[in-house]
Computed example of a mutant assay.
Amino acid sequence: MEGYILEIATSDFESARSAVAGGADRIELCANLGEGGTTQSYGVIKRCRESFDVKIYPIIRVRGGDFFYTEEEFECMLYDALQCKELGCDGVVIGFLNRDASVDVKRTAQLVKAVYPMGVTFHRAFDRCKAPFEALEQLVNIGCERILTSGQELTAPEGAGLIAELNMAANGRISIMPGSGVRANNLAALAAQTKCHEFHTSLRELKKSNMTFFPPAFENNNENDHYSINKEAVRVMKKTLSTLS
């Protein structure tokens, strides 16, 4: 595989626009990144698809918390995924586990089949799997494109050893994409250790509100501000990756 791919997790249209302007190769479009990401609104997904030429992969997740879902929750996510297909998205990001922390092979395969020929990323639900190498083989057989993982640690730099082993076991059959804690200052070391070619980051930073007035009770309230992305930070990541090619 030649070159490196930078995927940016964005939380709204504004942050997606900044990520694209900074040179992101792919967007994982989410809401509620503080909860690990949930599905964005139909309107935001539609506007992003119409506005940007880069690949758009909305996350399909109805809530925060664990990845063991009821039948009703799964039906909602299957519908959301089909809506993304209808909108012309390039792929979706999913993650379904059984109660015992194994991959829910049946539901994962059902959704992969339903959205074909769209691509499917299995997200960091993978990091909650009890048997990562068994899960890897299952996801290869199902037909997922890639696995987003921090190597079953809180951050990818901490889990780089397992990520490297997973990438070796994958042997090109599925892409292993490090994510969580990935920054410009650790990219080179992470790439060298894991031999991965796709990297995922959110680069979130707090953006102050542009409003000029709040009632006294709401002044200096953190809820006035929101997280977004600085396109220059994305450019730095892309420049760093270009030196590794």
Rank of each mutant, 00 (worst) to 15 (best):
K208S: 09
G43A: 08
S209F: 00
F122C: 07
L203D: 10
S228E: 06
V62G: 13
Q193Y: 06
Y227F: 08
E73P: 05
L241H: 04
G22L: 02
I176T: 15
C48N: 04
K106D: 07
N230M: 06
L136D: 12
I163M: 12
S202Q: 09
P216Q: 07
V92R: 03
G119D: 13
C196A: 13
R49P: 11
A164E: 00
E205T: 10
C196N: 13
I5E: 08
A191D: 00
P132H: 06
S11W: 05
T10Q: 03
M237R: 01
A9P: 10
L203F: 01
E165L: 09
V62D: 08
T212Q: 03
M211A: 14
V93F: 04
Q110T: 15
I59C: 04
F218H: 11
I56A: 11
S209G: 06
M177K: 00
E71Q: 11
R26G: 15
Q83W: 00
A164K: 01
N171M: 05
K130T: 13
V54A: 07
L162W: 10
G43H: 01
L111Q: 08
S245E: 12
E145K: 04
C129T: 13
A131I: 13
S180E: 07
V140N: 07
L206S: 06
M1Y: 01
D104S: 02
A16T: 15
L162M: 11
I174Q: 00
P178Q: 02
D53W: 05
A217G: 03
S228Q: 01
Y227T: 08
N220R: 08
M237K: 04
V62P: 07
N220S: 11
V44I: 11
A131R: 07
A19Y: 02
L82V: 12
S180G: 14
A109D: 05
A217W: 02
Y116K: 10
K207C: 09
